[in-house]
Design a protein around this nucleic acid. Structure first.
Lengths: 259, 259
DNA sequence: TATAGATGTCTACACATATAGACAAATAAC
DNA sequence: GTTATTTGTCTATATGTGTAGACATCTATA
């Protein structure tokens, strides 16, 4: 245990003049290193001078990065002692034929909840009408919500439902905080996922505010269609997951459960 | 056609002091707008003065953003005429039980190819050994490759194979440019995907170089295990997709084909 | 108590980013 | 040809980012 210690924080070489400040690249790097389990909860980060040398930058630059992460709640700095990890594991969110929010992250977080942000009835756009197999310009309910795990925002979702079939679903969701429970209220005993597409991009200002993210954060975007037992689409939703806190897992179907 | 025109480019409000330069945020915004189909191929971008007003920044800042996108090949600027979209559709990459690269994006690109970057035999890390169900420290073949569609880099993958079973797979892949063909060479008639996890992060310097990306670009990272007909893991791979050029699609299993 | 090691604060300077304004050069329409 | 529109280039200035060094302050330990 004398020569070279464990890497602790990966130092992939950084680049200037790319429009992304060095301190932000370093902050992202440290955050990612933590989420990938290089450093565990409560452990001490290497000293600022070490990090500066490792990343090949000035100590002040590292301090800017740390300051940002402290602001985010990822790190905790104590003068004279060091800087420590203040953190949770990245939650694995399974995507399968029977994807459900609360069931999916069950056991990974102490508490989960959904909060309604907005709900209104509107005329279906072309895309929404297609996704829900409705006539063009049918009335639809648009429900925007935020899901939390242990009090931290995990995702923000916008869902569309056939207004004629699910009128007032917003109020039910507001009470229950669960899509599954809300659909059950309208007689949907079971539903399955027909398709999911996944992409990734930077979070915009609204998402940053809604999900408590730092500028430049990444969101995983899923577009999904849920169908009822008869195969009719009942929900089209676009969900934005906080990429730093979530990992999507595409598993084989739960074959037996459907019987 | 007098009052308000179509939005053309979404102008979600920008933020300073976030460590990400305004011109980069604008570049990302325009690029995303294009990929989401707000503006079609060959169409003209609004004039720089308009964009500057729309984004609430100086014209020079917009010009920096456009310059970056021209460098990337997303836009083409012509003095006196305007700035035009120079673009391809985002390719949909399906992930299912029978995921295969060339088959997946078939029809979406005129040509697809795989190029080997590196191949070496190493001792399995703990993770790789677990994923391939091998004894700890077994010898494994590590194969790094880049996949292209129409000549543009689409993804970069690192795959591990049991060295005892697939010795020399690197040379076969180098010739064929196809994992499926290479596996077939070792008697693997068929294989299926057991699991896939998906996450997203910023590309590091190596990935930027390998995939011709601008700094700050996003990669979709999938970790997947493929198994043979008997259920034994034969390939563990980490693939980094260019988020701007790819959308992952999680579809229901192709039920009948397996019969 | 003294010392080493860690974070916190300050100054000074170089370079990148953003704003502001003016004008040149190419294109299209009249 | 003239004009309006649009991209390209230049200067100047203010602010943000990164480097460099010095020193203060807190903590743990000898």
């Amino acid at each position: 245990m004398t020569a070279d210690e464990k890497p602790a924080v990966a130092s992939t070489r950084l680049r200037k003049q790319g429009g992304v400040a060095l301190w932000r690249q370093i902050a992202d790097g440290i955050r990612q290193g933590i989420r990938e389990g290089v450093l565990g909860n409560g452990e001490r980060l290497p000293p600022e001078t070490d990090l500066a040398e490792r990343f090949g930058v000035n100590r002040h630059t590292v301090r800017s990065a740390i300051a940002a992460l402290v602001q985010e709640g990822v790190l905790r700095a104590e003068q004279g002692r060091g800087t420590f990890i203040q953190n949770k594991e990245r939650i694995v969110y399974p995507i399968s034929k029977r994807t459900r929010f609360s069931r999916g992250i069950d056991g990974q977080a102490r508490s989960t909840s959904g909060r309604m942000v907005d709900c209104l009835t509107e005329v279906a756009s072309e895309i929404v009408a297609t996704m829900l197999a409705l006539d063009p310009k049918s009335p639809v309910v648009k429900l925007k919500s935020v899901s939390l795990a242990d009090g931290l925002p995990l995702s923000s979702a916008t869902s569309w439902f056939d207004s004629r079939r699910f009128e007032g679903i917003g109020k039910i969701y507001e009470k229950t905080g669960s899509i599954t429970a809300s659909l059950a209220h309208f007689g949907v005993e079971d539903y399955t996922r027909r398709s999911t597409t996944i992409s990734a991009r930077h979070a915009d200002e609204i998402e940053c505010r809604l999900l408590s993210l730092a500028p430049g954060a990444i969101v995983l975007v899923t577009k999904a269609i849920n169908i009822d037992a008869s195969g009719k689409p009942i929900q089209f939703s676009i969900t934005r997951f906080v990429a730093d806190r979530v990992e999507l897992s595409v598993s084989p179907e739960e074959k037996l459960e459907a019987l």
